[in-house]
Amino acid sequence: MTDVAVPATTKKDWTSDQEIRWCPGCGDYSILTAVQMLMPELGARREDTVFVSGIGCSSRFPYYMNTYGVHSIHGRAPAMATGIAVSRPDLHVWVITGDGDALSIGGNHLMHALRRNVNLTIILFNNQIYGLTKGQYSPTSEAGKVTKSTPFGSLDHPYNPVSLALGAEASFVARTHDMDRKHMMETFRRAYRHQGAALVEVYQNCNVFNDGAFDLILSKDARPRMLIPLAHGEPIRFGPDGEWGVVFEDGSARVVEVADVGEDRLGVHDEHREDPSLAFALSRLASGPTAPTPVGVFRDVERPHYGALVNEQLVAAAERKGPGDLAALLSSGSTWTVT
């Protein structure tokens, strides 16, 4: 808001006095810690920061941040956050949401916030389950999932949140996971710095209702084989010894053994590519956390953010028509005088 230097803060300054009520062992704790540790590094002001959430386990998050915060209603956080961000471009607005909140009941709002490029940092906690309502399948649960509401297995085809966001032409899309604080912090930092809508999917373990959902890719020994780190300008390569890589063919991406194709054929990651189709192709490498999965920033392109465009129109209108004059407005139609 002002040019006065931002006072240095510590994690403690960003931690509210509220008792945290997530289940012990929940992946949400590590995400909260990552954000609270990151805030001092960002040089942000607490009073200029707003966390908005919907409903679900993740949506308790704002209560634990010593900033402004709103715990709204199910699915509507992007809508409410749009009102905040558009009316107050001076604030930094975060949206904290989950797979049910963002992709099921609130799917429409998420899609449109991304399309409009509202200046929001959206953290989507994906645990592939409904936790707060005690264990029903979610729109990211794998097909065939047996839960309380699907005793014979779910029939729904799941969403891939990164694919969805890229399909909505989000200007910033990334994925990280709750087992790697450093990677989370780096990804959140990038999202925070992005002007416009930034969506970060966080693979998050629900140890009560969907424990181990991501073990195949996130257990310590699996990570080198199953996570594909994305780095801008670098060949896309993974494996303990970099033995695998990704090539682009006919618009889709494919995992290959580097020895088979040669290093030169590996796809080079370009976050800033205007056309989102290669980023989309990367997002299709794994339909769920069972195959080698890209993590990091899929897309980061520049596009004016919505609040700035709205403000530009206000300024232009005031320049063209002069500042609003109420008396003149009320007499702007055909008028006559009775004496």
Binding site: V70, A79, A81, G83, I84, A85, V86, S87
Partner: peptide, 8 residues
């Protein structure tokens, strides 16, 4: 929702 956010 946006109107309420703006009011906030």
């Amino acid at each position: 929702g946006a109107a309420l956010g703006a009011a906030y």
